[in-house]
Amino acid sequence: MNLGSVFVAVLQRDWAMMKRYIVNTVSSLVSIYIIFLLIFLGFKSLSGYAATGALEGTMEGTVIGFFVWTFTVMAFSDLAWNLVIEAQAGTLEQLYLTPSGFKWVSGCTLLSSLTLNFIPIVVLLVTMMATTGQWLNLDFISLIPLLLVTVLGAYGVGFALGGLALIFKRIQAIFQIFQFVFVGFLVIPQRVPWAKLLPLSMGNSLIYDVMVDGTRLWELPIGSILTALIVGAAYLAIGVTIFSVCENIAKERGLLGHY
């Protein structure tokens, strides 16, 4: 298998697209920042309220939540949206002709998206920190593995929805809703008993520990890391399974090239 050359090809493709459509990349980051700014100003005007601790984590939590959410939504949309767009454009069938298999092309797409979006998202994070004056710990050695573990759940959801969209074309309408469902996963407090089992949730809380308390990766409770990893991997496995089932139905009905 030529996974190396597949990854290089995908990375070059995405880099070329990103360069050519830099305005899109920048404007989506700016719009996320603007939403963040509105929330931040809202908080400030209710400053007494924040101090009561009614909303756990308050400002730091919001900054981190936005950071993780941006990563998640990028990963999710690179999977689910791209699948729909490529099916409509007709390039999907060409991707399906890859000898290492379409799923690995998707996997490479996710990695390339993380690679290319990492720096812009960190710039966004720094801007958010500067706006709030909340300087958080940017310990990338601890953060990057945790981010990867956290987005696994979002990849699972992306695969599942992308697969369903191959068969039920209308389902793309709920993609947008899912971007907000992810917000829900990120804000549910860890003391809710089943919160650990939701995608994103556990990983997000570990990232919080690193960025706010300065805990290093190896100082975190191993049980929590394992929980985050197993939950993320389980969502990914379920998502890929749903995708495979849908893919089979699509091949049965000849839907890969019809949109």
Partner: peptide
């Protein structure tokens, strides 16, 4: 480059 790359 992209499509050839997919085929290694």
């Amino acid at each position: 480059l992209f499509f050839a790359g997919l085929h290694g």
